[in-house]
Design a protein around this nucleic acid. Structure first.
Lengths: 162, 162
DNA sequence: CAGAGCATGTAAAGTGTTACATGATTTA
DNA sequence: TAAATCATGTAACACTTTACATGCTCTG
């Protein structure tokens, strides 16, 4: 199971049934650049999950517009739970573009480094403000809170170390 | 430029010239599950970078064993610097398998949640100890330090929230 | 009622993974 | 000297991105 497939299953578990485009929109709304949410990734993944019996589709056309509502099957729920409970994958460091670039920042010429430091600080502060402006009742509120901690950690590192 | 290509360029910038396998071994040693470091990803990426003129290869065969030494060209260094200084990409949240799974953990049955909490706590504590055991003179020491902060943040969240 | 955006996809090309292959060198 | 592992790849398959296509529905 890819991370995208796992993420789709958790989305349907957390938020209940939705259409294919609803799934796609949820990824489009995600701030992470990791999720491009391109149609060519989402729709084939949904088809794979449906063919594997993890998702059940029921017709939900409204008027002339065709649509299908997707929900987790029992085996889909079981697969999702197995996936989320895999500790070694869950605690891996994942992918952090900030951590990947930081060692090079340290080696920049002083004036270039200072300029970049200011840009990074502004960007992170803005991002924290944007998170604070989000609806605390949003289904992704917990993820936003976790991203906020990450951004605060970065801000502290920028100020103290860069 | 993909993140893998950018990471290869930063590696050669930080550590100087090395062979193809040296590049691959650096990714194999990385703790992040994001870098599979499969030969089928690394070697084609190196070929692309060389064809684009960002890397220069010189023969470095030893005895009967063929090998080439790879180093950054001037345009390779310029591309790498442009890549690391892209602020909006650098401050994106990236991909965090922990954050992706956390909302589901919260919804588990109490006894299941408690068991998982213990497993996660043990795993993260072990990972922190493993980082502490690493050589502080390692070229990736800064990245290790940043991962350590991430793991400490997770540990605190596990203890306080999960 | 025309244009913007909603909703659902497909096709080609690029990238990554898994598995295999080959010969060189080190180590027990 | 046999086995392990170093070092360098390739091939088939899977997945993602980019670009395109199609018709519907709302809004000014």
């Amino acid at each position: 199971m890819t991370e995208l497939e796992g993420a789709i299953l958790t989305l349907l578990y957390m938020e209940g049934a939705m259409t294919s485009y609803g799934v796609r929109r949820a990824f489009l709304d995600s701030p992470s650049s990791f999720w491009s949410a391109s149609a060519g990734a989402i729709y084939p993944a949904l088809r794979r999950l449906e063919e594997a019996g993890l998702l059940i589709a029921t017709d939900a056309s409204r008027g002339n517009r065709p649509a299908k509502s997707l929900r987790l099957s029992e085996s889909g729920k079981a697969s999702m739970l197995e996936w989320v409970k895999n500790v070694s994958t869950a605690i891996g460091p994942g992918f952090d573009p900030f951590r990947l670039r930081a060692p090079v920042w340290i080696k920049l010429e002083p004036e270039e480094r200072k300029a970049l430091k200011a840009e990074l600080e502004t960007g992170v502060v803005e991002r924290i403000r944007a998170i604070d402006a989000l609806d605390p009742g949003h289904p992704d509120a917990l993820r936003h809170a976790l991203e906020r901690v990450q951004q605060e950690t970065r801000l502290e590192w920028i100020r103290k170390t860069l």
